[in-house]
Structure formats: structure tokens, C-alpha cells
């Protein structure tokens, strides 16, 4: 059924308005990151790219120590993603295959614990982390990042696994596999598609997390989300907007790239999660 021309035109107009409101600031940041610091302080603003330069990125490398921030983000994100793929899938398996009162309460707790925000838990965690020597360490941050990923990932895995017929693992068990073996050999390979989707969503969550690194790091551990607000000022009056937008760009480009390539998967993942909950 074809849509009447007029309705289609109205929809396009709305699409363009929404697109403008969302993309205009994003474009402006990206463009500014390639503009000389001095050209950024002009009024009216020059929106067309002129005199493109990589100076801002160079300044990030030299003055701000970009590599430390990249290293921190990559290490912590990779470790939390690895843990979430394996442990959340395992938990999802337990929740999907066994139903009794205790297990159901545990599942409800994990689901509702998303409602407890980081601001509420931060002070006791800071004291505990300091006491245990975990604050400002990679392992300490990884635990917190991983914990952040647990509710959504576990609920998604549980929902996905409950659609896989148990007869598959039973066949493997009859062939002599242990319960754990049945999980790793039969279930895990079947989870590949949802693992990919969840890893993309979880990657974006980890990259964007700010409150945890702000509160739990001092000088050893650095992550990308802290970079923007820690660029040294040029002088008392001038914010280093060029370098700040370059840092912002490094944060938004991976996210936007993933969104453009995996729009369908991310949309599907978020929607599925919402229906499950």
C-alpha cells in the first residue's frame, strides 16, 4: 500500500526538523575539533569548515596524555564485557532453566536493582573500596562497571535462553557432558547473535559512564569520559574548546559509528529488553 504523497511529505518535514535538532550540535562539535582554537572564538560562528587542522588532537596527545585515558577505557571495558558475556549468560541460563521461589526472588532483585542509582550507593562503596584497596585500581573499577551491566544483560540472556528448547542440552547430557559442559558446548554457541547486540550496547554504556570513574579514581586510573573535563586550561579566561571538542569527538565517534552500522541490532536489543521487563 503506497502512502499518499502529502502524508509522506509531512513525515519528511518532521524527520528533517528532528534530524536538525539532533545533528546540528553533533556536527558543530565534530567541525570544531578540526578548527584552530583561535577561529572558534568568532561571532557570528563560522559553520563551514575552513582551515582544517589536527592541532587539537595533537594537543590532546601532548598536553593531556591521551594514551593513558585510551588504555584505561580499553582495559576496563574489555574486562567488563568479557565478564558480562560469560557470567551474565551463565546466570541467565540458571534463571531460565530453574524456577523455584528462591531463584525467582533473586531474579526480581536483579531486575529491580536497576532502580538503585549510583548516587545512592556511592558513599558506602567509596569507604569500602578504600578499605579494601580497590579504589583507583583497574580491578576496582572493573567490578563496578561490570555490576552496572548485570541487570540488563542477565534479563536479556534469561529471556533468550528460555526460548531454546531444553531437549538440546538433555541430548548432550545423555552423551555424557556435565551440566556445565552442556552450557558451554550447547548453549553458549547459540547465544552469539544476542551476545553481539548486548556487547555493542554494553560497550556504549561503559564508554559513557562518568560518575563511577569520577568518584573512584584519583590519579592511577584514567578513562576517556574523564578526559574532556581534565584538559588543562590555556589561561585563566579561555577554555581550551578546541581540545575539548576533540576529546568529545573521540567519545562520540565510536558511539555514532556503532549506531549507524548496527541500528537494527541496537534498536532490537533495547526493545526486547523493555518487553522482557
Amino acid at each position: 500500500m503506497k502512502m499518499p504523497k502529502r502524508k509522506s511529505a509531512v513525515l519528511w518535514i518532521f524527520t528533517i526538523i528532528v534530524g536538525f535538532i539532533i545533528m546540528w550540535p553533533v556536527y558543530w562539535i565534530v567541525k570544531s575539533s578540526f578548527t584552530k582554537q583561535i577561529d572558534l572564538f568568532k561571532s557570528p560562528i563560522e559553520y563551514m569548515p575552513v582551515n582544517m587542522t589536527l592541532d587539537n588532537y595533537r594537543q590532546l596527545m601532548d598536553a593531556a596524555g591521551l594514551t593513558d585515558y585510551l588504555k584505561g577505557t580499553i582495559l576496563i571495558t574489555a574486562a567488563s564485557l568479557f565478564l558480562s558475556v560469560f557470567l551474565c549468560a551463565l546466570a541467565g541460563y540458571g534463571f531460565a532453566r530453574c524456577q523455584n521461589k528462591g531463584i525467582n526472588i533473586a531474579f526480581a532483585f536483579i531486575m529491580f536493582s536497576t532502580m538503585i542509582p549510583g548516587t545512592v550507593t556511592v558513599i558506602p562503596l567509596m569507604t569500602m573500596w578504600r578499605r579494601m584497596g580497590l579504589s583507583d585500581t583497574f580491578s576496582g573499577l572493573t567490578i563496578l562497571y561490570f555490576s552496572l551491566l548485570i541487570p540488563f544483560s542477565t534479563v536479556m540472556y534469561a529471556g533468550f535462553i528460555s526460548q531454546i528448547p531444553p531437549s538440546l542440552e538433555e541430548a548432550a547430557r545423555i552423551d555424557g557432558a556435565t551440566m556445565f559442559g552442556a552450557f558451554t558446548k550447547v548453549i553458549l554457541p547459540l547465544l552469539k547473535p544476542i551476545m553481539a547486540t548486548l556487547s555493542i550496547i554494553n560497550f556504549i554504556t561503559c564508554l559513557n559512564e562518568f560518575f563511577i570513574p569520577l568518584m573512584f579514581t584519583t590519579k592511577n586510573v584514567k578513562v576517556m569520559s574523564l578526559l574532556m573535563s581534565s584538559i588543562p586550561k590555556l589561561n585563566q579566561y579561555q577554555m581550551p574548546w578546541g581540545a575539548i571538542s576533540a576529546a568529545g569527538c573521540l567519545m562520540l565517534l565510536p558511539a555514532i559509528l556503532f549506531i549507524v552500522i548496527f541500528e537494527k541490532n541496537i534498536m532490537g536489543g533495547l526493545m526486547m529488553g523493555s518487553i522482557k521487563q
Partner: peptide, 28 residues
């Protein structure tokens, strides 16, 4: 055995979540 196995599956995730959300609420 199946129930015990299921608890073992969910335990790591459950412990971390209790440790990082439930306990801090009580402590707070």
C-alpha cells in the same frame, strides 16, 4: 542437583549485585 547447579550459575552475578547495591543502601 539441577537446583544446586542453577544457584551456582546465578551466584557470581547475584553476589556482585548484592555487594554493590543492596549492602550500600543498608550502610547508607
Amino acid at each position: 542437583r539441577k537446583t544446586i547447579f542453577a544457584w551456582m550459575c546465578v551466584l557470581p552475578v547475584l553476589v556482585i549485585r548484592l555487594w554493590t547495591t543492596a549492602y550500600p543502601v543498608v550502610a547508607m
